[in-house]
Design a binder for these strands. Structure first.
Lengths: 113, 113
DNA sequence: AGTAATGCATAAAATATTTATGTATATTTG
DNA sequence: CAAATATACATAAATATTTTATGCATTACT
C-alpha cells in the first residue's frame, strides 16, 4: 500500500498564495520556491504544476504574460482580482482544515461543543 | 472549476487516529464521530470510507471483528501493532504538512534558513 | 404505514497526482 | 570544449483518491 500523499488537494492553494506574495511568477520559479521554503520536503512536480496553472488560467484566476530571456520564452503568471478573492477563500479553507485536523488529532484542542 | 478538496489525502490519517483513540470502531461510527468533531464541516462519505478501511485491512494495519446487534451485523475495526506504528508515522507526516503549509502561507512563521 | 436513521458495500464518473517523456536553451565544470 | 547540469515549457499514460449514485437490509420514530 503506497502511502497516500497528504499534500494532494493543496497544490492550487500553495500556488495561489505564492502568486499573491510575489505579484508575478513563472512555473519553474514556483517549483524552486516551494523546495526552498519547505527545505526540500515538498517537491512540486511539473506534471502537476503546469496543468494546475492552466486550470487557474482557464478559470480566470491568473493571467499570463511572456518575457524573452535570451532566446527562451518565459511564461509569467499573475493573480487577477478574481484570483485574489479566490485565494482568500482558499486560505480560509486551509485554516479551517488545520483547525479541524487539530481537533481530530489532538482531542485536547477540541473546541467547546 | 470545482474547487479541489483540501481533505483529499488525509482520510487514512483521520481514520487511523480515531481508531488509535477509540481502540475499536465501526464505519458508521467513524462517519458520525468526524461530523461531531468538525461540527459538520467534514463529512466523510461512505464511498470513500469503506474502500479506505478495506485497504487498511489488506495492508495489515487494522483487524476486523464482527458483532451482532439485534439481527444486524456490525463490523469493528481495530488497529494492529503494525497499524499503530503506521499511525505514528502518519501523524508525524501531518505535523510536517501543517508546518510546511504554515511556512508557505505565513512567511513570518518560516523556519530559519 | 411511511420516513428517517443505522449499517454495510460497490461501481461509475470525476478529480488529482506521479511518472515518464519530449523539446530546447543556458550554464557550469572537468 | 564537451559533457553534465540547470533552466523552462509541456503533455500523456498510469495511478490514486474521492464524489456521486445506487443497492440491500434492519431499526426507530411519528
Amino acid at each position: 500500500m503506497k502511502t497516500t500523499n497528504i499534500y494532494t488537494g493543496s497544490l492550487s492553494t500553495i500556488v495561489m498564495k505564492l502568486l499573491n506574495e510575489h505579484d508575478s511568477m513563472y512555473g519553474y520559479q514556483i517549483v524552486k520556491r516551494v523546495i526552498e521554503i519547505t527545505h526540500g520536503e515538498l517537491q512540486i512536480t511539473e506534471g502537476a504544476l503546469y496543468p494546475c496553472l492552466h486550470k487557474l488560467e482557464a478559470a480566470g484566476f491568473v493571467e499570463v504574460s511572456y518575457a524573452m530571456i535570451g532566446r527562451r520564452t518565459r511564461k509569467y503568471y499573475k493573480l487577477t482580482e478574481k484570483g485574489t478573492r479566490e485565494t482568500v477563500k482558499k486560505l480560509a479553507e486551509l485554516e479551517r482544515y488545520i483547525q479541524n485536523m487539530r481537533a481530530l488529532i489532538h482531542p485536547k484542542f477540541r473546541q467547546a461543543e
